[in-house]
Measured scan of single mutants.
Amino acid sequence: RGFLEKAAVKKMAKAIMADPNKADEVYKKWADKGYTLTQMSNFLKSKTAGKYDRVYNGYVIHLD
């Protein structure tokens, strides 16, 4: 289950990176699912340092 969630989160993160207008909708879905910042950090780990920082930081702001 965790692997599928991670894959889904990364897919949506890539969608945000391609079209930032989708961010609020995606952040709301993640918040509704109760994803914590720790979970998001783990889901968005990448071999490329900083690749998903913008998405993660946007989610931090959304939760605030």
Rank of each mutant, 00 (worst) to 15 (best):
K11T: 07
Y35T: 01
T36V: 03
K10C: 13
A23Y: 03
T38R: 13
Y56H: 03
K6W: 09
L63S: 02
A7V: 14
K14W: 08
A7E: 08
M40Q: 02
Y27W: 02
K51W: 07
M40L: 10
A49V: 14
H62Q: 03
K10G: 03
K14E: 11
I61L: 14
L44R: 00
L63Q: 04
E25W: 07
G50V: 04
N21L: 12
A7H: 09
V9H: 01
N21V: 07
A31T: 09
Y56E: 02
S46A: 05
L37T: 07
K28H: 08
A8F: 08
L44A: 00
P20I: 08
Y52F: 10
K10N: 04
H62F: 14
Y52N: 02
N21A: 12
K14Y: 07
K6V: 08
N42K: 13
G50S: 08
A23T: 05
A15I: 13
N57T: 08
W30L: 02
Y56I: 12
M12H: 07
D19C: 15
V9L: 04
G50I: 03
A7M: 15
K6L: 09
V60W: 05
Y27V: 01
T36E: 03
A13D: 00
G34D: 03
L37Q: 06
E5S: 07
H62N: 01
N57S: 10
L63T: 04
F3D: 15
I16Y: 02
K6H: 10
V60R: 12
V55P: 01
E25L: 05
L44G: 00
K6M: 12
F43W: 13
A31R: 11
I61C: 15
Q39G: 02
G58Q: 04
K10H: 06
N42S: 08
K33E: 08
K22T: 08
V60L: 09
V26K: 02
K47M: 07
Q39I: 10
W30H: 00
K6D: 05
K22H: 06
L4S: 09
E25R: 07
K33F: 11
Y56F: 11
K51P: 05
S41F: 13
A18R: 13
Q39V: 08
L4N: 08
R54W: 12
Q39D: 13
G2K: 13
D64T: 14
L63K: 03
V9Q: 01
G58C: 04
G50Q: 05
Y59H: 00
Y52R: 00
K10Q: 10
P20Q: 07
P20A: 07
N57R: 12
M12F: 05
V26C: 07
A13K: 01
G2F: 15
I16T: 01
I16L: 07
G58D: 06
R1T: 15
G58A: 04
V9N: 03
G58V: 03
I16F: 01
G58M: 04
K6E: 07
D64W: 12
M40A: 03
G34H: 05
A49G: 12
N21C: 15
D64N: 14
S41L: 10
A13L: 04
D32K: 14
I61Y: 09
M40G: 00
T48M: 08
E25P: 05
F3W: 15
G58H: 03
K47G: 14
K51V: 13
M40T: 02
V55W: 01
K45N: 10
Q39W: 04
T36G: 05
Y59R: 00
V55D: 00
G34C: 08
E5L: 13
G50W: 04
L4Q: 12
M17D: 03
K28P: 03
D53K: 07
T36Q: 02
V9K: 00
K47S: 10
N42F: 12
V26G: 03
G50A: 05
V26S: 04
F43V: 05
Y59T: 01
M17W: 04
K29T: 13
G34Y: 03
A18E: 15
D64A: 14
R1Q: 15
N42C: 15
R54H: 11
K29P: 00
D64Q: 13
A23G: 06
Y56V: 07
K28T: 08
K51Q: 09
K45W: 08
K28E: 07
T36N: 06
E25S: 11
R1F: 15
T38Q: 14
A8W: 12
N42Y: 14
H62A: 05
V55R: 00
G34N: 05
K11R: 12
I61W: 10
V9F: 04
R1C: 15
A18L: 10
K51E: 10
L63Y: 04
G58I: 01
I61D: 13
K29H: 14
S46E: 06
A13P: 00
K11L: 13
G34I: 03
M40F: 01
K14S: 09
D32R: 11
A13W: 03
A23C: 11
T48W: 08
Q39L: 06
G58K: 03
N57H: 10
V60E: 10
E5Y: 06
Y59G: 00
N21W: 09
N21M: 10
R54G: 13
T48N: 11
K33I: 10
T48D: 12
I16H: 01
K10L: 15
K51S: 05
L44T: 00
L37F: 04
N42E: 14
Y27M: 03
G2E: 15
I61S: 12
Q39F: 04
D24F: 13
M12Y: 06
F3R: 15
A8R: 14
A8D: 08
K33S: 07
V60H: 06
A15G: 06
K6C: 14
A7F: 12
E25H: 08
D53E: 09
N42I: 13
G2H: 15
A15T: 11
A23M: 06
T38P: 09
E5D: 09
L37Y: 04
Y56M: 08
W30C: 03
A49Q: 11
G2C: 15
L4A: 09
A31W: 08
L4T: 10
A15W: 06
Y59V: 01
V55Y: 02
A8C: 15
Y35K: 01
V55L: 02
Y56R: 02
G58N: 04
R54C: 15
L37P: 11
H62R: 03
L37A: 10
A23W: 02
F3I: 06
A15C: 14
V60N: 05
K22S: 07
Y52H: 02
G34T: 03
L4R: 15
L44D: 02
T38C: 15
V26I: 12
M40D: 00
W30R: 00
A31D: 06
S41Y: 10
Y35M: 05
Y52L: 03
K33G: 05
M12L: 12
D64G: 12
K11I: 10
V9E: 01
Y52M: 03
M17P: 00
K51A: 07
K14G: 06
V26N: 03
G34S: 04
K28Q: 13
A49T: 10
A15R: 10
K45Q: 12
D19A: 06
L63H: 03
A8T: 14
M12N: 06
D32H: 10
A18G: 05
D32A: 12
T36C: 04
M17Q: 05
W30P: 00
E5R: 09
K47F: 09
K6F: 11
K22F: 06
Q39K: 04
Y52Q: 01
Y52P: 02
A15F: 06
Y56C: 04
A18I: 09
N57W: 14
A18T: 10
Q39H: 07
T48K: 10
S41G: 11
D32M: 10
P20V: 06
K29S: 12
N57D: 14
H62C: 05
R1W: 07
T38K: 13
A18V: 08
K51R: 05
D24L: 11
T36H: 03
V55S: 00
R54T: 13
K45D: 06
K51C: 07
A23Q: 06
A18M: 09
R54Y: 12
L37M: 06
N21S: 14
A7T: 10
T36D: 07
A13E: 03
G58W: 02
K47Y: 07
M17T: 04
M12K: 04
I16N: 01
D32L: 10
T48L: 07
M40H: 01
V9I: 12
V55G: 01
V9W: 02
G50N: 08
K10E: 08
T48Y: 10
P20S: 08
V9C: 05
K11D: 06
Y35A: 02
A31K: 11
F43R: 02
K11H: 08
L63V: 05
A8Q: 12
A7C: 14
I16K: 01
L44K: 01
G50D: 07
K10Y: 07
R54L: 11
M17L: 13
F3E: 15
Q39P: 01
T38L: 11
D24M: 09
G50C: 08
K11F: 08
Y59F: 06
L37K: 10
R54I: 12
T36I: 02
V55A: 06
K51F: 15
D24A: 13
N57A: 13
K22N: 06
D19R: 04
T48Q: 12
L4W: 15
M12D: 15
G58E: 04
Y59N: 00
V55H: 03
